[in-house]
Structures are given as structure tokens and as C-alpha cells.
Design a protein around this nucleic acid. Sequence first.
DNA 1: CGCTTTTGACCAGCGC
DNA 2: GCGCTGGTCAAAAGCG
Length: 474
Amino acid sequence: MSDFDGNFIEMTSYWAPPSSPSPRTILAMLEQTDNGMNPISEIFPQTNIPRDHDTDQSGQRSGLRERLAARIGFSLPTLDTINMSPLDAFFRSSTVPNSPVVAISPGFSPSALLQSPNMASDSSQIIPPSPATNYGPPEMVETSGEDNARTMVFNNDLPYQPYNVDLPPLEVFDDIPTEESFYIPSYEPDVDPIGTPLVASFESELGDDAHIDIISIEDSESENENKDEDDEDYQYDYEDDDQDVYLDEEEEEDEDNVASDDDAQPSSPKRRRFDQASNNIGATRTSKTQRVILQMETDEDNPNDGYRWRKYGQKVVKGNPNPRSYYKCTNSECKVKKHVERGADNNKLVVTTYDGIHNHPSPPARRSNSGSRNRSAGTTMPQNQIDRTSRLARDPPPPARTPVEMRPFSSMAPQVNLSHVYMTGLSKLPNIPVYQNPGFMYRNDEPMMNVMPDGADVYGGIMHRLFVKFGVDI
DNA sequence: CGCTTTTGACCAGCGC
DNA sequence: GCGCTGGTCAAAAGCG
């Protein structure tokens, strides 16, 4: 499979969710990369089209937002992205409220996005480093419908240069977000350009072993009981205290200064108790593992994410006429589960929730030959569905590259083929080492793109900072 | 034949 | 205690 031959790219022009090209178009664009032609702008040809999101799609978005808000426990503010320069934000080290640029957070395991063999070595885009810290209220990203929204598209063909930039003040590391967001627009050609909100979110619950995700490979399955409801000190009680690197007392004070109202900050690590209670409405969720919610627009009922899954249940849940499908990783040693459902208000929006951490690499794709099964590399699916699956989704994960392949398979990261991921978001995130090179392009009305570090850079930066601050040497 | 999905039943947590 | 709900189980059916 052809990779984007570019680098981690930030699209600095104002961006509006484009109408997405067909898989064929994408593949054609990808194949052009060998000519040194960055395909991004051609994949996203309508990047400058403003969107009137306050018209007929508002109902859809609000419905989704309300659902997410109900699920997570707080309302979702609208992101104001106008007049905000992503680059400015990116290289700003201090507070940038409502930064639209997605970042890796220490709370949300970087490995979830960077250590994934698929995501890191595929043509994938990765969650980029954070440009900014945000001390605002807990955020879910709600940006896709915004005019002038910005997006970042990434690739990771840059060499591993994790330490070639100045580290930001470590204080920002204290502010641990638990939610990330990015957009995965449909690559289907018939997407309404003013269509559905491309709201995506990560929810890292920072559960009992969430922090381990950054540091080591451990069985993510923890059947811990909920922490004592009466325990008001909000101390983390990770099982593996040796690697409890998130907060110390001082940091907690800082955190409390920022977030005086606990209930208003469900995304905070300190909201873990809240999350556990509120995020499972009537559910029986005993496994307090890290959870990631991924939303993307696609016609596939279960987009390939690089792993193989076995469906073990389906249920219609309250508030959504579309059934929710439950999957387990087919690896017998792996306890990761996920469930997939379509948006109640937007049938093109597929919401995938991952629970757990894969303790194995993604399996090789099942090759389809004449007369044999033709299954996707990931979740098995009916033939008719496979036939609708893009080639991108069927392609096997490419060989992992150093240093990616040396990383633990610690991620429950959704290993979606993020061939054309739009990322944006709000976050309270640390600055992570980045560097710039002049590899931008500006062609016609297409976004100017600035080369940004790849996943290895970001990962290395995080590791370095862990080492600097906590002495954790991976 | 092997593996998958389907689907109704069952289980367990939560709120009232 | 009861009902609601999300999550899981497991037998049957489907598919190549």
C-alpha cells in the first residue's frame, strides 16, 4: 500500500470539512506520492469551502453532541477556531484556549496513537503533539461544522528525531487531559459537504492501568472495583505504583486550582470516579480499562482497524435506533473488546468504542484470492460488506519500522487506517517536541502545509519528558 | 470443515 | 425489591 510520502503535515489554512473523495481517488492520490507530489490537497480538494453548520445540520450535531454529553457527563462546548492560527498555537507554550490542534496527551496514552503498529507504520496519520495547553473547562471537541475549522493531516516518514527541540515547561504536563478528538471524514464521494458533524473523540478514562500504557506492556484487564465512592482525596490508586507518573501532591493542587469543580471536569483524571459512574449509563462495565471512543464517517459498519474481531453480541441501546455490535479481539490471549454503533442522528457516523489494550501486534491481513474468503484485514464482515470496503481498509498493515516496531503493543488504540484523518481538537495538553522544516506547500487554494514531526518524534519526546521528570527510562 | 454472525436469553449494576 | 439497561453467553445458522 502506498504511503503518503509526505510528513506530518499541518494544514494551516482555514479548513472546512471537505467532501471526501472516493477510495479510488484516494488510492490514486496515494500512488502519486512517489512522484513527490503530496496528495493531501488533492484528497481534500474543498478545503476552503465554508460551511454553514447552523442550518439544517445543526440538529444532527446537537443530537450527537447531546448524546455524547449524556454519555460522558458534560456538555460539549463549541470550538471557536476562527482567527486562530494553528501554527501559532502549535508553537505556543502557554495557554491557548480552545486550541483546535490535536495533541497527544500524557493522560491519553501516546502509545494509543503512536505505538500502534498500524497507525505508526501505515500511511497513517497520528495524533500530533500538542501545541498548547488549555486550562479551560473540560472539552469535547465540536468543531467539524465550524467555519474555518482547521485540520491536521499527518504522516510519519520523518526520521526518528525525538530530542531535537526544546522541551516545553514541564508544568504543562501536569494538566492531564483525558479526551482527545479527531475527525475522520468519510471517503465516500457522496458525503454532503455540509453534512454531518465529524465529531470524534477519544475518551481516555485513565483507569487503573491507563498510565501503564505509556510505559509498559501489561494486561489491561483489570477487574478492580470502583474506587471508594467516599474517597474524596482523588488519589490515583493505580495498581502499579512504580509507574504512577501522573500526579504528585503538588500537581494535584495545581490541578485543583484549575478545576475547582470536580463535577465540571469529567475529563480530568480526577474525574475517573465520575467517569466510571457516569459513563456507563446503566451498564455493567467491570473492566476499568482505558477506553477510546472513535467516531468516523464511513459507510462501513465496522471499519477496519488492523485487528481481527469476532462479533459476540448485538443490542439496541437506548437513544439510538441503530444497534450496537459487540466485538472481541480474536486473539485468545487478548481481552480487548469494542463495540460499534452508528450515530443516532447520523447514519454515516460510526462510533467505535475500544476497551482494553491489545497485548499483541495486529495480525496480518487475510489475503483474499479467488475462491477464497475475502475478508478485511480487520474485523470480519459479510462479503457484501467487504466488497464495499475500500482498498485502504483491506490492505494489511505494513511492516513496522524502527522505532515503531520496538514499541509495546500497548495500545488499545483504534488502529484505523487513518489514511486521511482530520484531526482537530481541544485539549489540555503539554507541549511535545516538535520541529519545523520548510516542507510546506501552498498550491492554488489548497492548504499550506507545514511539516511536523512524526509519531516517532512525538513518542520520543514523551519518553524523554517522562525520563526527565519522573526518571522513567523506557 | 472451520470460522463467523445471528439472536434470544441471561447476568449484573444502577436508580427509584 | 423491582425494573431498566448495557453487556455477555451460547446454540444455531450462515458462509466460503
